[in-house]
Design a protein around this nucleic acid. Structure first.
Lengths: 125, 125
DNA sequence: CCGTATCCACGCGGATACTG
DNA sequence: CAGTATCCGCGTGGATACGG
């Protein structure tokens, strides 16, 4: 919680580490992956099926990035062939609330946004 | 507001329009711009000075995108030379809360994230 | 099943120069 | 002052093929 008593704002600095973190955590496929893993642990190919548009390469990259940031865990079960299960971590769960806030915002404001886009596109034609 | 009465999760769909909207609103420079404009209306070059790392081209693009989505307004004062003032709109202000939630999360969890990164990088070396 | 390796196209964003 | 125009490198992400 940042200081809300300060009359001046300006303390809302978006520095490089912040930006980088948000980029890693909010990138193209992360939200979908997080969404799935918030419900249940998933195998790699379960995730692929749940998110049909993602390629294998991108899904691997997304999972590695989230793992590196401590958002998901990777569990390898040494069967033949191997089974790999991905789970959300406690740290990852703390991301749920702010992401939900963002998605709620998007849901709520989407009509106004679309109006604004139409209006803008009309003036520029 | 999504339906919070549903016991099941899985309703947290991230579809293409959602992703596109978030991409437009959370892109590389938008947070910094929004941050400035939440405090006060700004001229173009005021914004450049406030965000030294942004190029003219990128700042223009960011402002156009935000304007198109109804997040900021552009006011041209017909002096010589022209003055252009950018302001946040009421719609834009509704973005503040979810973005703050995200930045608060980043502030709070940054140490844990950095630990996770070090641990991960150590195992992979 | 769960990846890695390779190739390639495309678009973003920076640098620079110029204009009303 | 507030942009537009142009060029260009570089990373990201898709397609495809192969490996443990």
């Amino acid at each position: 919680m940042r200081d809300t008593t300060a009359p001046r704002a300006a303390e809302l600095r978006i520095d490089a580490p912040h930006r980088e973190l948000l980029d890693q955590v909010l990138d193209k496929w992360s939200l979908s992956v997080l969404n799935e893993l918030c419900e249940r642990p998933c195998r790699f190919n379960e995730l692929r099926r749940a998110i049909p548009a993602v390629t294998q390469k991108s899904l691997t990259a997304t999972l590695r990035r989230l793992e590196r940031n401590g958002i998901v865990e990777r569990h390898v079960v040494a069967t033949r062939p191997v089974a790999v299960e991905y789970r959300i971590t406690p740290l990852g769960k703390t991301l749920r609330a702010p992401i939900d806030a963002l998605l709620d915002w998007a849901d709520a404001q989407m009509p106004r946004i679309e109006n604004a886009r139409r209006a803008f596109d009309a003036t520029v034609e």
